[in-house]
Amino acid sequence: MANHAHKLEIFRGLIKFKSNTQKIWGVLLLLSIITAVEVVLGIYKPISLMTPSMTPFEGGFGALLCNIIFSGFIYMKSLNLLFIVLTIVKAYYIAWDFMHLRDETKALRRLVVWTTIFLISYLIFILLQEAGYIESVYTNGFIKRDF
């Protein structure tokens, strides 16, 4: 095991570390910076990021498709979208460098990553979609809540 090979580049080879230990500290720095950015944005909540960055497309099937494709930009506050993207970036570096997925075979990597991504995306879609429907019934239906 002594000559266990590690891939030492991150950012697609933009940064190459000299040793595995050095790479670990580099990744820690990156994760800390991302967390600090999240915390600062979470505390100050810049007004410019508190609204969605796009308005919904109108009319026709193409507009519907565009609304689905850009749903993150249309229906989500920019700040929340940013938080989720940063979280996924963090998750990537934890899995790739701390859990050594970068050094595993491509097949194992895909086995782990695509299975979870596929199932979780489906779960999120179905639950949030239905929750939106129930919310619309609560809001527009004849349900009294303020008592």
Partner: peptide, 11 residues
Amino acid sequence: AAYGFSRFKFI
């Protein structure tokens, strides 16, 4: 996701 479900219900 269940948390998200409940939160979206009472958004």
